[in-house]
């Protein structure tokens, strides 16, 4: 039957290891640094409180990605949020990367519709395979490849360059 699951790992080590993964995905999903900070805290609090058990590290990462998406969705679709400021008008959406060119790339990614933005982000920034993205986003791998392709097309137009080349 199923292997015994395990938690494993010091909580601080887990946070250190996955802070950027969780925060980056939350930022890509919500478009707001403040919301991404909130999601980051929520995810690891849930992780700490529920103490989920995992078969392996891949399982842990998949859980964190999925929980990040769920909590991000909860924040961005809350009634309160829908009645307040649109995401693109929020003052905290800009991310201060060191390099202005990097800010330009991020702005182009952030401007993509969500259906393209998340696959693009997970593929290029988190270096997940299409299979892993499909699992995280509950999509078929073919759908992920299609969205990556269309997302790349849009980025080529907006960036006038080949940053997001074919794998």
């Amino acid at each position: 039957m199923n292997e015994p699951l395990r938690t494993g790992g010091d909580p601080e080590d887990i946070i250190r290891l996955y802070a950027s993964t969780v925060y980056g995905l939350a930022l890509a999903r919500t478009g707001s640094a403040a919301d991404a900070d909130d999601v980051f805290q929520e995810v690891f609090l849930v992780y700490h409180q529920s103490a989920p058990r995992f078969r392996d590290e891949e399982h842990r990462k998949a859980w964190l990605l999925r929980t990040t998406l769920n909590l991000s969705r909860r924040i961005t679709t809350s009634t309160w949020r829908r009645k307040t400021v649109p995401l693109e008008e929020r003052p905290d959406t800009a991310v201060p990367f060191r390099d202005p060119e990097e800010n330009r790339i991020w702005a182009a990614v952030a401007a993509l519709p969500e259906e393209y933005r998340l696959p693009i982000y997970l593929f290029y920034f988190q270096e997940l395979s299409t299979q892993e993205i499909a699992k995280a986003l509950r999509l078929r791998p073919g759908t992920v490849r299609m969205r990556l392709s269309r997302g790349r097309d849009r980025l080529r137009e907006s960036l006038k360059g080949e940053y997001f080349d074919e794998p």
Binding site: A19, L27, E102, Q126, Y163
Partner: peptide, 11 residues
């Protein structure tokens, strides 16, 4: 470049 950007994405 993407790795560098990802590393900067910290809470």
């Amino acid at each position: 470049r993407f790795r560098s950007m990802q590393e900067q994405l910290v809470p």
